[in-house]
């Protein structure tokens, strides 16, 4: 004999109600994940943390800024920190001291900037690793406004990497900015 809705006790009705709600929500979420379910705007950047991580650790091109990465600044920063072999935090408090930008020490590395005596429009960037066996493929700099830049690093020699960059290289502006966080990945 078929039970009628009238026969349902309150807990049974509540069960039916909650099942209905859950089934509806599940269907809604399933609609989103269906392959090709919804047209994505092109180009679609998403905010996949896996993809951000993959780009960081595999040397793939990074998004130009936090917005393009689709992550919160502090989340991206924490992710970069996790992926990095060495990192230098922002040193905003000392921004008025010129020497701070010229030498910044962080976790596992000291970064120095020194102008070339041969051409003052060029600057040496030296990374000295605390652990001489350490190596990093690239330097990623993250500004408080979310802008990012990266520099490919050569193989270290005796625990140090030295680059020479032109002063009109945007990367140098990042490096000289004490508000910038720097990660070696």
């Amino acid at each position: 004999m078929t039970r009628t809705w009238q026969d349902f006790t309150d807990p049974e009705r509540e069960t039916a109600r909650q099942l209905f709600v859950a089934l509806t929500a599940s269907t809604s979420m399933a609609a989103v994940v269906e392959p090709g379910a919804t047209p994505r705007p092109a180009p679609y950047t998403g905010r996949s943390i896996s993809q951000a991580w993959h780009a960081i650790v595999s040397g793939r091109p990074l998004p130009s800024d936090v917005e393009a990465a689709g992550l919160a600044l502090e989340d991206l920063s924490a992710l970069l920190d996790r992926a990095s072999v060495a990192a230098v935090p922002r040193q905003a408090a000392a921004a008025t001291d010129p020497s701070v930008a010229a030498a910044r020490t962080g976790r596992g590395v000291t970064i120095r900037l020194a102008p070339s005596r041969s051409d003052v429009s060029q600057t040496y960037v030296t990374l000295e690793f605390d652990d001489r066996g350490m190596a990093a493929g690239r330097l990623i700099a993250l500004r408080p406004d979310g802008a990012m830049t990266e520099i490919a690093l050569p193989t270290p020699v005796e625990g140090a990497v030295q680059l020479l960059v032109s002063d009109d290289d945007p990367a140098l502006v990042f490096l000289a900015d004490t508000d910038c966080r720097i990660y070696l990945v």
Partner: peptide, 24 residues
């Protein structure tokens, strides 16, 4: 369907976006 799902109010557009990110 995805828009409909959100319109039907079962999930927020943000949660829909979270699932879409995972799917993509």
């Amino acid at each position: 369907s995805a828009e409909r799902a959100v319109l039907e109010g079962a999930i927020s557009s943000e949660l829909a976006e979270v699932f879409r990110v995972l799917a993509d």
